[in-house]
Protein backbone atom coordinates (compact mmCIF):
# COMPACT_ATOMS: atom_id res chain seq x y z
CA UNK A 1 0.00 0.00 0.00
CA UNK A 2 1.28 3.43 -0.92
CA UNK A 3 1.13 5.90 1.93
CA UNK A 4 0.06 9.40 1.09
CA UNK A 5 1.98 12.17 2.84
CA UNK A 6 -0.38 14.29 4.94
CA UNK A 7 0.35 17.76 3.55
CA UNK A 8 -1.29 20.73 5.25
CA UNK A 9 -2.35 23.75 3.23
CA UNK A 10 -1.86 27.00 5.14
CA UNK A 11 -3.55 30.28 4.32
CA UNK A 12 -1.41 32.58 6.47
CA UNK A 13 2.23 33.48 6.65
CA UNK A 14 4.60 34.91 9.23
CA UNK A 15 5.48 38.57 8.85
CA UNK A 16 8.94 39.22 7.44
CA UNK A 17 10.94 41.61 9.60
CA UNK A 18 14.07 43.33 8.32
CA UNK A 19 16.83 44.27 10.75
CA UNK A 20 19.69 46.47 9.65
CA UNK A 21 19.95 49.34 7.18
CA UNK A 22 20.65 48.60 3.56
CA UNK A 23 23.65 50.91 3.48
CA UNK A 24 25.37 49.19 6.44
CA UNK A 25 27.44 45.98 6.54
CA UNK A 26 24.48 43.74 6.70
CA UNK A 27 20.77 43.30 6.65
CA UNK A 28 19.02 40.25 7.97
CA UNK A 29 15.49 39.20 7.32
CA UNK A 30 13.60 36.92 9.65
CA UNK A 31 10.17 35.33 9.38
CA UNK A 32 8.24 35.07 6.14
CA UNK A 33 7.52 31.37 6.60
CA UNK A 34 4.42 29.82 5.08
CA UNK A 35 4.63 26.62 7.08
CA UNK A 36 5.77 25.15 10.39
CA UNK A 37 9.51 25.00 11.12
CA UNK A 38 11.55 23.12 8.51
CA UNK A 39 8.52 21.52 6.80
CA UNK A 40 9.84 22.42 3.38
CA UNK A 41 7.35 20.15 1.64
CA UNK A 42 4.40 22.23 2.90
CA UNK A 43 5.42 25.77 2.13
CA UNK A 44 8.12 28.34 1.64
CA UNK A 45 10.72 29.10 4.31
CA UNK A 46 12.52 32.08 2.78
CA UNK A 47 14.74 32.95 5.74
CA UNK A 48 16.91 30.78 7.97
CA UNK A 49 16.75 31.35 11.73
CA UNK A 50 19.53 33.65 12.96
CA UNK A 51 21.79 33.68 15.97
CA UNK A 52 22.64 37.03 17.59
CA UNK A 53 25.65 37.32 19.88
CA UNK A 54 24.81 38.89 23.23
CA UNK A 55 27.14 41.73 24.17
CA UNK A 56 26.88 43.84 27.31
CA UNK A 57 27.67 47.50 27.88
CA UNK A 58 29.38 46.64 31.16
CA UNK A 59 31.51 43.76 32.43
CA UNK A 60 29.00 40.99 33.19
CA UNK A 61 30.47 40.13 36.55
CA UNK A 62 27.78 37.66 37.50
CA UNK A 63 28.32 35.45 34.46
CA UNK A 64 29.53 32.02 35.61
CA UNK A 65 33.21 31.26 34.98
CA UNK A 66 32.23 28.38 32.65
CA UNK A 67 30.83 31.01 30.29
CA UNK A 68 33.04 34.01 31.03
CA UNK A 69 36.27 32.05 30.33
CA UNK A 70 35.26 31.68 26.66
CA UNK A 71 35.47 35.46 26.21
CA UNK A 72 38.30 36.34 28.64
CA UNK A 73 39.33 39.96 28.93
CA UNK A 74 37.04 40.96 26.03
CA UNK A 75 34.12 41.05 28.45
CA UNK A 76 35.51 44.20 30.00
CA UNK A 77 35.22 46.28 26.83
CA UNK A 78 32.13 46.13 24.62
CA UNK A 79 34.11 47.13 21.53
CA UNK A 80 36.68 44.36 22.05
CA UNK A 81 33.83 41.95 22.80
CA UNK A 82 31.93 42.90 19.65
CA UNK A 83 35.13 42.71 17.64
CA UNK A 84 35.68 39.14 18.81
CA UNK A 85 32.08 38.29 17.83
CA UNK A 86 32.59 39.73 14.37
CA UNK A 87 36.17 38.79 13.53
CA UNK A 88 36.68 35.58 15.42
CA UNK A 89 33.19 34.10 15.21
CA UNK A 90 31.71 35.79 12.11
CA UNK A 91 28.67 37.12 13.95
CA UNK A 92 25.79 38.13 11.67
CA UNK A 93 23.99 40.15 14.32
CA UNK A 94 24.69 41.62 17.72
CA UNK A 95 22.35 41.91 20.66
CA UNK A 96 23.45 44.73 22.93
CA UNK A 97 22.08 44.39 26.45
CA UNK A 98 22.27 47.73 28.23
CA UNK A 99 22.42 46.19 31.67
CA UNK A 100 24.71 48.95 32.90
CA UNK A 101 21.81 51.40 33.05
CA UNK A 102 20.63 49.58 36.16
CA UNK A 103 21.88 50.95 39.49
CA UNK A 104 23.12 47.49 40.50
CA UNK A 105 25.34 47.36 37.39
CA UNK A 106 26.76 50.86 37.18
CA UNK A 107 23.89 53.31 36.77
CA UNK A 108 25.12 54.45 33.35
CA UNK A 109 23.40 57.47 31.89
CA UNK A 110 21.07 57.44 28.87
CA UNK A 111 23.59 59.63 27.01
CA UNK A 112 26.40 57.14 27.63
CA UNK A 113 24.26 54.21 26.53
CA UNK A 114 23.15 56.06 23.39
CA UNK A 115 26.75 56.91 22.54
CA UNK A 116 27.88 53.32 23.05
CA UNK A 117 25.08 51.87 20.92
CA UNK A 118 25.71 54.35 18.11
CA UNK A 119 29.46 53.72 18.34
CA UNK A 120 29.08 49.96 18.02
CA UNK A 121 26.64 50.34 15.15
CA UNK A 122 28.98 52.77 13.42
CA UNK A 123 32.08 50.63 13.86
CA UNK A 124 30.70 47.22 12.91
CA UNK A 125 27.66 48.07 10.81
CA UNK A 126 26.00 44.80 11.78
CA UNK A 127 22.26 44.42 12.28
CA UNK A 128 21.68 45.34 15.93
CA UNK A 129 19.24 44.24 18.56
CA UNK A 130 19.22 46.46 21.62
CA UNK A 131 17.53 45.66 24.91
CA UNK A 132 17.23 47.60 28.12
CA UNK A 133 18.18 46.73 31.66
CA UNK A 134 14.76 45.35 32.57
CA UNK A 135 13.63 48.18 34.83
CA UNK A 136 10.61 49.84 33.21
CA UNK A 137 11.25 53.32 34.53
CA UNK A 138 14.94 53.35 33.69
CA UNK A 139 14.39 51.80 30.28
CA UNK A 140 11.68 54.34 29.42
CA UNK A 141 14.13 57.09 30.22
CA UNK A 142 17.07 55.51 28.40
CA UNK A 143 15.78 53.60 25.35
CA UNK A 144 14.30 56.61 23.50
CA UNK A 145 17.74 58.24 23.57
CA UNK A 146 19.33 55.02 22.30
CA UNK A 147 16.65 54.70 19.63
CA UNK A 148 17.29 58.23 18.44
CA UNK A 149 21.06 57.67 18.32
CA UNK A 150 20.42 54.63 16.11
CA UNK A 151 17.92 56.47 13.88
CA UNK A 152 17.79 55.00 10.39
CA UNK A 153 19.63 51.79 11.24
CA UNK A 154 16.45 49.70 11.44
CA UNK A 155 17.37 48.05 14.72
CA UNK A 156 15.23 45.74 16.80
CA UNK A 157 14.65 47.28 20.21
CA UNK A 158 13.14 45.77 23.33
CA UNK A 159 11.27 45.11 25.27
CA UNK A 160 7.69 46.34 25.29
CA UNK A 161 5.28 44.70 27.74
CA UNK A 162 1.51 44.83 28.14
CA UNK A 163 1.73 47.41 30.94
CA UNK A 164 4.66 49.32 29.44
CA UNK A 165 4.72 49.63 25.67
CA UNK A 166 3.84 53.21 24.76
CA UNK A 167 7.20 54.94 25.25
CA UNK A 168 9.20 52.34 23.36
CA UNK A 169 6.61 52.03 20.58
CA UNK A 170 6.66 55.80 20.06
CA UNK A 171 10.48 55.76 19.93
CA UNK A 172 10.57 52.91 17.40
CA UNK A 173 7.95 54.67 15.29
CA UNK A 174 9.90 57.91 15.30
CA UNK A 175 13.29 56.38 14.51
CA UNK A 176 12.34 53.61 12.10
CA UNK A 177 13.09 50.60 14.29
CA UNK A 178 11.23 47.36 14.95
CA UNK A 179 10.13 46.36 18.43
CA UNK A 180 10.33 43.32 20.68
CA UNK A 181 6.98 42.58 22.33
CA UNK A 182 7.50 40.52 25.45
CA UNK A 183 4.79 38.43 27.07
CA UNK A 184 5.15 36.13 30.09
CA UNK A 185 4.68 32.73 28.37
CA UNK A 186 1.11 33.76 27.65
CA UNK A 187 -0.35 33.58 24.16
CA UNK A 188 -3.34 35.78 25.05
CA UNK A 189 -1.10 38.58 26.25
CA UNK A 190 1.23 38.17 23.26
CA UNK A 191 -1.73 38.69 20.94
CA UNK A 192 -3.11 41.59 22.96
CA UNK A 193 0.25 43.34 23.06
CA UNK A 194 0.67 43.04 19.29
CA UNK A 195 -2.73 44.70 18.86
CA UNK A 196 -1.91 47.48 21.34
CA UNK A 197 1.39 48.23 19.61
CA UNK A 198 -0.08 48.18 16.13
CA UNK A 199 -2.94 50.41 17.32
CA UNK A 200 -0.29 53.05 17.95
CA UNK A 201 0.68 52.88 14.30
CA UNK A 202 3.65 50.52 14.30
CA UNK A 203 2.82 47.95 11.64
CA UNK A 204 2.69 44.24 12.52
CA UNK A 205 5.61 43.76 10.12
CA UNK A 206 7.81 45.57 12.63
CA UNK A 207 7.02 43.47 15.70
CA UNK A 208 9.00 40.47 16.95
CA UNK A 209 7.49 38.44 19.78
CA UNK A 210 9.56 37.43 22.79
CA UNK A 211 7.33 34.68 24.14
CA UNK A 212 9.63 34.31 27.19
CA UNK A 213 11.35 31.00 27.19
CA UNK A 214 12.68 28.68 29.84
CA UNK A 215 15.93 26.75 29.60
CA UNK A 216 15.98 23.03 29.01
CA UNK A 217 14.60 21.52 32.21
CA UNK A 218 12.93 24.76 33.27
CA UNK A 219 9.58 24.86 31.53
CA UNK A 220 10.85 24.66 27.96
CA UNK A 221 7.89 22.44 27.04
CA UNK A 222 5.46 25.15 28.08
CA UNK A 223 7.25 27.78 26.02
CA UNK A 224 7.30 25.32 23.11
CA UNK A 225 3.54 24.75 23.29
CA UNK A 226 2.82 28.50 23.40
CA UNK A 227 5.00 29.13 20.36
CA UNK A 228 3.48 26.23 18.48
CA UNK A 229 -0.05 27.45 19.23
CA UNK A 230 0.77 30.94 17.98
CA UNK A 231 2.33 29.52 14.82
CA UNK A 232 -0.65 27.31 14.05
CA UNK A 233 -3.00 30.28 14.48
CA UNK A 234 -0.76 32.54 12.41
CA UNK A 235 -0.52 30.05 9.57
CA UNK A 236 -4.31 29.69 9.68
CA UNK A 237 -4.62 33.40 9.00
CA UNK A 238 -4.41 35.24 12.36
CA UNK A 239 -2.13 38.16 11.50
CA UNK A 240 -2.09 39.44 15.07
CA UNK A 241 0.15 36.57 16.18
CA UNK A 242 2.04 36.14 12.90
CA UNK A 243 5.26 37.71 14.19
CA UNK A 244 8.71 36.15 14.20
CA UNK A 245 9.97 34.93 17.59
CA UNK A 246 13.08 36.03 19.43
CA UNK A 247 14.34 33.77 22.22
CA UNK A 248 16.88 34.86 24.82
CA UNK A 249 18.48 31.47 25.12
CA UNK A 250 21.76 32.41 26.79
CA UNK A 251 20.00 34.54 29.39
CA UNK A 252 17.89 31.59 30.49
CA UNK A 253 20.43 28.79 30.19
CA UNK A 254 23.32 30.32 32.10
CA UNK A 255 21.11 30.84 35.16
CA UNK A 256 20.65 27.10 35.58
CA UNK A 257 22.78 24.99 37.89
CA UNK A 258 23.12 22.34 35.18
CA UNK A 259 24.90 24.75 32.83
CA UNK A 260 27.41 25.61 35.50
CA UNK A 261 28.53 22.02 36.11
CA UNK A 262 31.27 22.29 33.47
CA UNK A 263 31.98 24.40 30.36
CA UNK A 264 31.16 21.41 28.15
CA UNK A 265 27.83 20.81 29.83
CA UNK A 266 26.98 24.50 29.71
CA UNK A 267 27.66 24.60 25.97
CA UNK A 268 25.51 21.53 25.41
CA UNK A 269 22.75 22.97 27.61
CA UNK A 270 22.68 26.20 25.63
CA UNK A 271 22.86 24.44 22.26
CA UNK A 272 20.14 21.92 23.15
CA UNK A 273 17.79 24.63 24.41
CA UNK A 274 18.35 26.53 21.17
CA UNK A 275 17.76 23.41 19.07
CA UNK A 276 14.43 22.76 20.78
CA UNK A 277 13.33 26.37 20.33
CA UNK A 278 14.21 26.20 16.63
CA UNK A 279 11.68 23.39 16.31
CA UNK A 280 9.12 25.52 18.14
CA UNK A 281 9.57 28.27 15.56
CA UNK A 282 12.30 30.56 16.95
CA UNK A 283 13.56 33.03 14.33
CA UNK A 284 16.23 34.81 16.35
CA UNK A 285 18.25 33.10 19.07
CA UNK A 286 20.21 35.40 21.36
CA UNK A 287 23.09 33.33 22.69
CA UNK A 288 26.19 33.70 24.81
CA UNK A 289 28.79 30.93 24.52
CA UNK A 290 30.69 30.95 21.20
CA UNK A 291 31.03 27.16 21.16
CA UNK A 292 27.28 26.73 21.63
CA UNK A 293 26.65 29.31 18.91
CA UNK A 294 28.95 27.43 16.54
CA UNK A 295 27.05 24.19 17.13
CA UNK A 296 23.68 25.85 16.63
CA UNK A 297 24.75 27.62 13.44
CA UNK A 298 25.89 24.27 12.05
CA UNK A 299 22.63 22.70 13.12
CA UNK A 300 20.62 25.45 11.36
CA UNK A 301 22.62 24.90 8.17
CA UNK A 302 21.87 21.19 8.34
CA UNK A 303 18.19 21.80 8.94
CA UNK A 304 18.00 24.27 6.08
CA UNK A 305 19.63 21.67 3.84
CA UNK A 306 22.69 23.72 3.05
Amino acid sequence: MVLQAAIEKWSGKIAEVTIGAANAAGVIKVGGQETLPFLFSEGKIPNAPRVAFEVWDVHPEDWPPELAAAWGENLKDPFAWAEACVNKYQAQALCLRLQGAHPDYGNRSAADEAKLAAGLAQKFGLPMIVIGCGDNELDNAMLPAVSEALNGRQCLIGSAAQDNYKTLTAACLADGHSIIAESPIDINIAKQLNILISDMGLPLERIVIDPTTGALGYGLEYAYSIMERARLAALSGDKTVASPFICFVGHEVWKTKEAKVSPEQGVIWEAMTAAALLQAGADILVMRHPAAIEKVKQHIENLMGK
Binding site: N188, Q192, L196, A230, D238
Partner: peptide
Protein backbone atom coordinates in the same frame (compact mmCIF):
# COMPACT_ATOMS: atom_id res chain seq x y z
CA UNK B 1 -6.93 32.71 20.19
CA UNK B 2 -8.43 34.79 22.98
CA UNK B 3 -7.05 38.20 23.86
CA UNK B 4 -8.76 41.14 25.56
CA UNK B 5 -9.31 42.81 22.18
CA UNK B 6 -10.45 39.62 20.42
CA UNK B 7 -13.38 41.33 18.69
CA UNK B 8 -11.09 43.95 17.18
CA UNK B 9 -8.47 41.33 16.34
Amino acid sequence: IYCDSYLEA
